[in-house]
Amino acid sequence: MIPWLLAAGQAVLVMLVAPLLIGLMRAVRARLEGRAGGRVLQPWRELRKQLRKEPLIPADAGAFFTAAPAVLVATSVLVAAVAPFLSTRGPLSGVADLVVVVGLLLLGAVALALAGLDTGTAFGGMGASREMIIAALVEPTLLLAVFALSTRVGSTDLGAIVAAGATRPAEVFTPASALAAAALALATLAEAGRLPVDNPATHLELTMVHEAMVLEYAGRDLALVEWAAAMRLTILLGLLANLFIPWGVATDPHPGALAVAAGVFVVKLAALGCLVAAGEVFLAKLRLFRVPELLAGSFVLGLLAVVASSVLA
């Protein structure tokens, strides 16, 4: 019973924190650009307003368009519940391993790509095809980077990997870990639609990837899609934080340890978010045809991490 409550609490925490993370990243960026910027709570204001607005369905859209926001939110909430963010012992440990988490994230991405195609507009289809190119290159990298860590532990269970890191910190600082961290960081940026792969603040349809697929969403549906996108960023940054900085994660479901874990998790997320936002100020978006080169580079890093961890271990 307690692991299930814990999973629900973790999902609620990610749902609450995700829009704040976006607000924090926008605030950091605004500060570095010399602007005053919006409040950190502003994304929550936008979500609250959009949840109250009517959703509009385009005349040509079908079932994929209406189902995609629900699928996207459901997969994000499920991953948020089972991933080892607060405690390494989830209710589904043994089932909810690395492959399932990556698969759920991919399911959400595919649902949104189908929704983009379903509207029948040129930009929706364009965004969908680009998203699939990126997803096809990113998902193997995500898997490989974490495989490099799982060979050390002998399990693909994310909770076991994080628990091993938390109890034996010396093993976190290995060449394989450094390579895997670099690969996973690049894959995270690409999967979450951040610079240099996609620009979340763009208004130019021709350069859009994620935005192009959601151009036709309005009101409540748009709120769900944006919320899920924020949750995916939070999930990926949270995984990055807990796999490579595994301290503070509770290894037993003790209330005090869990409270500390929640605080440490939020601090880690905020630090990573600030780092990403500050880095984005110095970056321009890559030309689309250069993106596969970057992602191939991150895949090679992941491959080297796997080789290093099996040879050097």
């Binding site: 919006g38 502003q42 204001r45 936008e46 509009l56 763009t202 208004h203 130019l204 349809e205 859009m208 935005e211 151009l215 036709e216 969403y217 309005a218 748009l222």
Partner: peptide
């Protein structure tokens, strides 16, 4: 609290 967006749907 004002933000420019790319689509009238938003």
């Amino acid at each position: 609290g004002a933000r420019l967006v790319a689509s009238p749907r938003h």
